[in-house]
Design a binder for these strands. Structure first.
Lengths: 206, 206
DNA sequence: GTCTATAAGAAGATAGAC
DNA sequence: GTCTATCTTCTTATAGAC
């Protein structure tokens, strides 16, 4: 990784730990293994480093969204995949989503940084809500909608059903972000949640 | 309100808007209507102001918790209240909880401040999780447990049912904290959520 | 591109008069 | 308890040699 990229990487780590204001340019330079003045050859200010992180993340999000909507467009293929899904598959799906959000390094650091800085700038608040609320609800709404179309799940309100599926995952995610030692119990709760979700919305009579 | 208390109040407002590091002692003093040095007659440091806010909130939380557990202890009285509860009552209950959390001035500012500062200090993270996750789940679990005991709601897992009731409220709360213009649509979603919750867990055959 | 040295300014905190 | 003046330290950023 070149220096310019390493600066972003180390800065993101520090911003996620302490927040923008409590990270000094010298801290970032230290982690990269250079002196603070050298850093100004790559970025013209501390704010420019922050902006570059946001910019890069926007790019990643866009790629992710495109990847998802490419699958989403080919709904018949997706429908085929989800035709024979059962409760265990649903648990696996939810757990994998949860673990990805929690353990993907870039994702986790970025989410923490946004959590800290969200009230600092309306744009950051919008990025947070889009990335961790609206987009997941939209994407999972599409998936769960397929399961309803297949008759695997039953409801007359897919968007509320999706909220019922995702909001416990979101809540547990924020818990584990604050306290990683609660991961194990959260995974247990997550599984119970999805099994009960399946009982509530599943085709079989409860 | 005396000066010492007004300092806490204005400091909390500013900390909730900008975070601890971006609020200057002079800003706080300005809002109170005094000069920064005068502020040091009341608190020996900026950190001491922050600590006093946390301390005061701990006191409020404790009082709140005691008030709740006094009611909770007299479960027979509570059970009587919730004996004839119907869907509209449940919607009202959830909406009132939501609006209290969102509009109670002290509560809202303190939650925003904690949101910003939660990764700064493990103790703050614990306060957040206790106050906005564990305690609500525990309290609402008790209430919903009463409704199950009355046969108004049906489940073999009250704690997951409580998670299903509360986590959408929590998610919508964080959305409105970031973007108050989404209050109206969130209230609509909240009502839909509770009505669907009642359909899923209600005594009547779905 | 990296360094040392340093400017420029911000922000927390104190001294001492009133 | 409040003020003005000031100290001290910290932090961003630049200058200029290598």
């Amino acid at each position: 990784m070149d220096t310019k990229q390493r600066i972003l990487d180390e800065a993101l780590t520090l911003f996620a730990q302490k927040g923008y204001a409590d990270v000094y340019v010298a801290d970032i330079a230290d982690k990269v293994g250079i002196k603070a003045p050298s850093l100004y050859k790559h970025y013209r200010s501390k704010q420019a480093i922050f902006d570059a992180i946001i910019e890069e993340m926007n790019g990643r999000f866009l790629m992710q969204a495109q990847a998802l909507s490419i699958n989403g467009a080919d709904a018949t293929a997706d429908a085929e995949i989800y035709k024979h899904i059962d409760e265990d598959h649903l648990v696996k799906l939810g757990t994998e989503l949860f673990m990805y959000y929690l353990n993907d390094d870039y994702t986790r650091r970025f989410r923490k940084m946004l959590t800290i800085e969200q009230f600092h700038d309306k744009d950051l608040a919008d990025v947070y809500t889009k990335q961790y609320i609206d987009d997941p609800l939209s994407y999972q709404g599409m998936l769960l909608g397929l399961l309803v179309a297949q008759g695997i799940l039953v409801t007359d309100n897919v968007s509320i059903m999706t909220l019922h599926f995702y909001s416990p995952i979101y809540l547990l995610l924020t818990v584990c972000d604050r306290d990683p030692s609660r991961l194990e119990s959260s995974l247990k709760t997550l599984e119970e949640h999805i099994r009960q979700f399946n009982k509530l919305y599943g085709r079989t009579i409860k």
